[in-house]
Amino acid sequence: MNDMINVALPKGRLGEKVYSLFESAGYDCPAVMDPGRRLLFENEEAGVRYFWVKPSDVPIYVERGVADVGVAGKDVLLESRPDVYELCDLMLGKCRMAVAAKEGFVDDTSRPLRVATKFPVIAREYYASRSREIDIIKLNGSIEIAPLLGLSDVIVDIVETGKTLAENGLVPFETVVGISARLISNKVSYKFKSAAIREMEEKVRRAAEKKAEETKK
């Protein structure tokens, strides 16, 4: 059991893309993509054991050493600040964290800016770096509605195509940080499964670069 690399995959569309990358890097385990409720899969020959977890929980599994490695979005890592190694950018799930507001919005700097977000740590740090006082309004979903109903002045949220924002009359006007999926490792696993994890990092990095090249074409 100790020689296997335990990999925490984020459930959902991103996780499927991530698995396909691992598969092309030589870490296949076909049962992973079987429909059903199973969450734990292994391929002894490839030396890998996968489990599906909620995307925002991936860093917890890795930090606590239950998973040796995992894949998490940069947004999740910036928000939860886990004590893990961030080994490489898989260049999947690319999007950006942005500030958006109603079209024509002008910041009234005479009072604190009301910011609705699912990402209070990222938002707080961004505005602290600009010395702007803000009032954070932590929401868990439907962020776009906050400025429309007057709950907030702006939102800080993930923007992929900008379509949802546009449909709600919002425009992104500042990029906070670029987001993509990252391969992370538990620090202790990195010491005791060093060769296997470094080999996986190298193979997956190469597969990610190849995939990015193909996408460009």
Partner: peptide, 9 residues
Amino acid sequence: GYIDGIPRS
């Protein structure tokens, strides 16, 4: 220092 099985230094 690290000991195998303990998830932090």
